[in-house]
């Protein structure tokens, strides 16, 4: 049976002027109950997409369904909690009063305030003014406000942005807790490690366009997945030889080693060829592409170039 969709967009487009196309024909599917990572470099169109899904922006073209209704409609917003771009609250109010204001806007019982403050571990500082909060506390208050309505779908824009390592770990744990409660999370980030650690599926956006979608493993596989790493002497002779045996673009030199974008099953034959031609091979192993490699390949490199995968330790 097909899984229900929490977010669905068809050809979603946002153009700010004739020259700025922030989101370009975006087709996004977020399944109910998953943590979906929306990955892209700064300025790729992530926040604009999340604003479109929250009803803050009107699309130029295309359509979207968020929590079963049109973005920004009361039916959609009733089931959606979101923190877009930055946690924005009234600086002269305490954390608790800010949540009271938001609860009143949402027509939510104020009895929800203490549980969400507890969930984000902010109870002790809830009576302090928002302007005195650290970045981490502001982010947590943003998540608390997003959770006030007990939403089915949570949109979090760069939730670990500006956090110290401890805060980052805590935020990740919080997102995992939220997921365990059965909520769907759409999480945007430019931090690959964060997405790799928290998300079930990933969509990569660049220049407003979705360029890849799948699980982290699927993305790795789609981008060539694994490679062969060879340390050999003399290096330039080994490189010339391998380039004559393979396509030139399959051979790269990185950190004093040769990285070959080939099927690892060719390792034995390539080793024989190198040794029989007088090249000493000191290391030959399979190297797994990191998500970072995949990300760079998808977002930065022009077609035809291959990103050197990081050596697996």
């Amino acid at each position: 049976m097909a899984q229900a969709l929490a977010v669905e967009t068809h050809g979603l487009t946002k153009r700010y002027s004739t020259t700025v196309l922030a989101v370009n024909d975006l087709n996004l599917l977020v399944r109910t109950g998953e943590v979906y990572g929306f990955l892209g470099p700064n300025g790729a169109g992530k926040t604009t997409t999340l604003r479109l899904l929250s009803g803050l922006l009107h699309p130029t073209a295309g359509s979207a369904t968020v929590a079963g209704a049109a973005p920004g409609s009361p039916a959609s917003l009733a089931r959606l909690g979101a923190m877009v771009e930055t946690p924005a609250f009234y600086p002269y109010l305490s954390g608790r009063d800010n949540l009271r204001v938001m609860a009143r806007y949402s027509s939510v019982s104020t009895s929800r305030i203490e549980p969400v403050l507890k969930q984000v571990d902010l109870t002790d500082r809830a009576h302090h003014k928002f302007r005195t909060y650290s970045t981490g506390m502001k982010q947590r208050l943003g998540v608390a406000a997003a959770l006030l309505k007990d939403p089915d779908l949570l949109i979090l824009d760069e939730p670990t942005s500006g956090l110290d390592p401890q805060g980052t770990v805590e935020m990740r744990a919080l997102i995992r807790d939220i997921r365990r409660e059965g909520r769907t999370v759409l999480l945007s980030s430019h931090l690959l490690n964060e997405v790799e650690l928290t998300c079930d599926r990933v969509g990569v956006i660049t220049k407003g366009k979705l360029v890849a979608e799948g699980t982290v493993d699927e993305l790795r596989a789609r981008s060539g997945g694994r490679a062969l790493l060879i340390r050999a002497t003399p290096l330039d002779q080994a490189q010339r030889l391998l380039e004559s045996l393979l396509k030139t673009e399959q051979v790269l030199v990185a950190d004093g080693a040769l990285v070959l974008s080939v099927d690892p099953s060719q390792a034995a034959s390539l080793n024989r060829q190198l040794v029989s031609n007088g090249v000493d091979v000191s290391e030959l192993r399979v190297s797994e592409q990191s998500l970072e490699d995949v990300f760079l390949q998808l977002t930065e490199n022009p077609p035809g170039t291959v990103t050197p995968p990081a050596a697996q330790s």
């Binding site: 929250s54 009803g55 009361p74 917003l77 959606l80 877009v84 609250f89 600086p91 806007y105």
Partner: peptide
């Protein structure tokens, strides 16, 4: 200035109601 307009509109009320 504080971008709270965004936080408010993501809650439930319509723009007209706000």
């Amino acid at each position: 200035g504080w971008l709270t307009v965004q936080t408010i509109l993501i809650q439930k009320p319509t723009r007209g109601a706000v």
